[in-house]
Amino acid sequence: MSDRILGGLALVFAAFYIWQATLIRESFMSDVVGPKTFPLILGVAMGVCALVILLRPDSDPVWPKGMQLLEVLMAVAVMFAYAQLLPDLGFLIATALASTYLTWRLGTGPVMAVIAGIATSGGIYIVFRLILGLSLAKGPLGF
């Protein structure tokens, strides 16, 4: 079933891609092939692939259920939040929060996770900012 959904989505994607490719503006000074052709070829090939996957699916993988799925979704949400908040919070705070969360969810006790999170953040800051001089996100507090 998963493969049929994948095939279906890929087919829609291929159609969308082909439609987008037809919208590419041709410039009057183009080469023989032009900017549209290769994307069109790719779109059509993708459509064929999608059909094959749709018609001859493999057996289903084991998808995470319930709590496991929630676990993955939460981690993704935390990483999205991290990406968004990094410039606002600054590197040290944002990283300490995110790595505390991940360490905790990977099965460490809460107190230990906070310590590990702060250590991770501080360690990376020392190595990459202070020793190697990489520019990390500066928050309102300057770190």
Partner: peptide, 10 residues
Amino acid sequence: MPVVAMISFV
């Protein structure tokens, strides 16, 4: 693992 994740963001 969290260290790896954070280093890739950095």
